[in-house]
């Protein structure tokens, strides 16, 4: 008699099967499939080999940036400098090769080192200088962009062949896609299997509890920003390799795409939550939407509106889902 149906009834749909759970935990992936299906129906140009490779290439730079950023966001920080650091790394690498007349492989490693170093500087400012990461990396955003312009004097510089190779093809597979996969595997490995990776989740979840359990919090913070810088450096090399030249205004605003990819992928800006697989899906969602809207001849102005809505909806659904769990 007292089985009054209540507002909470729909919640019963949760739990249940393993598949249902997987889908609930991977909302962005479901979204990506739905998106792909819709575009497949809407246009014959979507599901073609060349277009899919194109999506992979376009996703590579954003995804690699976002992989690095995932470390930082998991540890409850933010890195606004990744776009600028990518540009600085690419420019530095090109300068080492063209102006410094060093071998190409040194230019390649040099570019990555510049990225890692920039990240480490932000990391030290956060861990030891006690700057909020928003501020430290906002400063780095400006500093790195400025240095890029200083080095290049505002002009593009040609890249080393080793760097251009990153933008080329290996057989039929474009190198950026290979780099994307390798970078993703490395990032996921670090987060899941290394002590440092697990420490990142602990620091992001509760910094003080982590410290009291013996987690070297400052070392963890320096590491996440260094990794973020390193991945940004790699993304910068990918970008310049595709164009065979480092552009002073490259990757402007990419940090926002990277942040969007990470949060669409289910990470929490409050820290402690985030996965590389999610971030990859997030990056693909962004790129597939752009690609699809291009194929459908939607103006790039409207594309920005759509992307904004997607970010809001994706994160909104995710936080609603979390709210429906106890505590």
């Amino acid at each position: 008699m007292n089985k009054v149906a209540t507002a909470a009834a729909p919640k019963k749909a949760r739990g249940g099967s393993r598949i249902g759970r997987f889908l609930a935990d991977n909302g962005a992936l479901v979204g990506l499939f739905v998106l792909g299906l819709a575009l497949f129906i809407a246009t014959p140009d979507f599901l073609t080999g060349p277009n899919l490779l194109n999506i992979g290439i376009q996703a590579s730079v954003i995804a690699v940036l976002a992989f690095g950023l995932t470390f930082v966001i998991v540890a409850a920080g933010i890195d606004l400098s990744v776009g600028s650091v990518a540009a600085l790394s690419a420019m530095g690498s090109a300068w080492i090769f063209s102006e410094g007349s060093m071998p190409g492989w040194i230019a390649l490693i040099g570019g990555l080192a510049i990225g890692a170093l920039s990240g480490a500087v932000s990391g030290f400012a956060v861990a030891y200088g006690r700057l909020p990461s928003f501020i430290a990396t906002l400063a780095m955003l400006s500093i790195a962009r400025g240095l890029t312009l200083v080095i290049s004097e505002g002009r593009p510089i040609g890249t080393a062949p080793e760097v251009s190779f990153l933008g080329g093809d290996l057989g039929v597979i474009p190198m950026p896609i290979i780099v994307l996969v390798v970078a993703g595997l490395v990032a996921a490995f670090i987060l899941n299997f290394t002590v440092m990776g697990r420490y990142m989740y602990a620091v992001g979840g509760n910094k003080e509890a982590a410290r009291l359990s013996g987690v070297p919090v400052r070392k963890v913070l320096v590491t996440v920003f260094t990794l973020s810088g390193l991945f940004a450096g790699l993304a910068g090399l990918l970008l310049s390799g595709r164009l065979d030249s480092a552009q002073p205004q490259a990757a402007v605003g990419y940090e926002l795409d990277a942040i969007a990819a990470v949060v669409i992928g289910g990470a929490s800006l409050a820290g402690g939550i985030g996965r590389i697989s999610g971030t990859l899906v997030g990056a693909l969602v962004l790129v597939v939407i752009r690609n699809g809207l291009n194929l459908l001849n939607v103006s790039s102005f409207w594309q920005q509106v759509v992307i904004g809505l997607v970010i809001a909806v994706a994160v909104g659904i995710d936080s609603l889902r979390r709210k429906n769990q106890p505590h």
């Binding site: 299997f193 290394t194 002590v195 440092m196 990776g197 697990r198 420490y199 989740y201 602990a202 979840g205 509760n206 003080e208 509890a209 982590a210 009291l212 359990s213 013996g214 987690v215 402690g272 939550i273 505590h327």
Partner: peptide, 30 residues
Amino acid sequence: AHGLVLGAPVNENIGYATLSTTAKSGLVDR
């Protein structure tokens, strides 16, 4: 506030102090 990472699993919370001492070359002994 100081004892637990509330959002992390029981497994992880028990293991924080021993993550590094039981690790082999930086890899967690999962």
